[in-house]
């Protein structure tokens, strides 16, 4: 607004933005939970929230990229559990102590390779993304449980044990409650920073938006659509490998039955964050807020006295309402316009 006096704070908030709505919902949810259970407003809760957001946040950033590119991926949890379990198994069999970052690199490499398998079917053969990733999810999990292993590994390699002990922030509240934040949180921060730069400032990042908006137009202005798609699925695979190994390290166990089933919650978080399934639109801020909302719902339902059996219903309803309202508004605007 040039030339006018500075508008009030309230007037400057854009209520049409998805992020604004999300912040309001998160605040409202926190307020209600705090009223019912005053213990909610404490540093330990905040740090629990941050710690629980690490793995889901990394997954969500990957899913965001896929949605922006106009696809969907449901196989990333399978990739994560395959990477974490195979990495742990290889390092245990090797018997040589390796530093944590070597384990991370191995897991990321396995994840990237599996992501390239998705890319082969999606970018190579041009198959529908949902059905391909449903297929690869069951293939990856089937191979893991049939040929790699189906037993827990509770004695993790030394490097991963050490990583779990690396704590960034720790402290005790006045009431004597202990809280801490592992260094793994830095991985989420790093992933967010790298992906933000990628999406905002690189040709590759802008190409991802372009192919999601309209693959045909993107092809005609000279964007190598298949190469960009290949990158997207490889990147998601790499992030899944990273999230998987962090999950195993923090959980202090490699469980081959873990993580699969979480994919719907992650997709819900990203979609609530405003990313469009049709492609071409999505923000990192929105995605992170979506993750916070889903993690918040999961943890505070119990504090609110709602049985955890209702969790699935709440997440499903959030998906329908959170995406239905904007879709309906867009449709009404479109109808009015023309």
């Amino acid at each position: 607004m040039p030339g006018t006096s500075r508008p009030s704070l309230l007037a400057r908030i854009d209520f049409g933005r998805n992020e604004t709505l999300l912040v309001l919902v998160i605040l409202a949810f926190s307020a209600v939970t705090a009223l019912v259970a005053p213990s909610f407003l404490s540093l330990p809760t905040l740090f629990d929230l941050l710690r629980n957001s690490i793995v889901m946040g990394i997954f969500a950033i990957g899913v965001l990229l896929v949605l922006i590119s106009g696809g969907i991926d449901v196989s990333f949890t399978g990739i994560a559990v395959f990477s974490l379990y195979t990495t742990t198994l290889i390092l245990t069999r090797l018997g040589v102590p390796v530093p944590w970052w070597a384990a991370f690199l191995l897991s990321i490499a396995i994840g990237t390779a599996l992501g390239l398998v998705n890319a082969l079917f999606i970018a190579g053969f041009g198959l529908p993304t949902l059905i391909v990733t449903l297929g690869t999810l069951s293939v990856i999990r089937g191979v893991l449980l049939t040929f790699v292993g189906s037993t827990l590994i509770s004695n993790l390699p030394v490097g991963l044990k050490e990583f779990a002990r690396l704590v960034m922030i720790r402290g005790t509240t006045a009431e004597g409650y202990f809280f801490s934040l592992p260094w793994a949180f830095a991985a989420l921060v790093g992933v967010v920073a790298v992906t933000w730069v990628l999406l905002q400032y690189t040709t590759l990042g802008r190409s991802i938006f372009a192919i999601g908006g309209s693959p045909e137009s993107a092809r005609r202005i000279g964007i190598p659509v298949r190469a960009v798609q290949t990158f997207v699925y490889a990147y998601v695979g790499a992030l899944a490998g990273l999230a998987g190994i962090i999950h195993a390290s923090l959980a202090r166990v490699a469980n081959p039955f873990d993580l699969v089933g979480l994919e719907m919650s992650v997709i819900a978080a990203v979609v609530l964050g405003g990313a469009r399934l049709a492609g071409g639109y999505g923000t990192i801020t929105g995605t992170l807020l979506g993750v916070v909302l889903i993690v918040l719902v999961n943890t505070s339902l119990i504090l609110l006295g709602i049985p955890s059996t209702w969790q699935m219903v709440v997440i499903g309803a959030l998906i329908l309402v959170g995406t239905g309202v904007p879709a309906w508004q867009a449709r009404r605007t479109a109808l009015r316009a023309g």
Binding site: I72, I267, V271, L277, W310, M312, I315, G316, A317, L320
Partner: peptide, 13 residues
């Protein structure tokens, strides 16, 4: 995809 994903979670839930 989204509609039936969400409603499927609700029905199962």
């Amino acid at each position: 995809i989204l509609a039936t994903l969400g409603s499927g979670l609700i029905y199962t839930g």
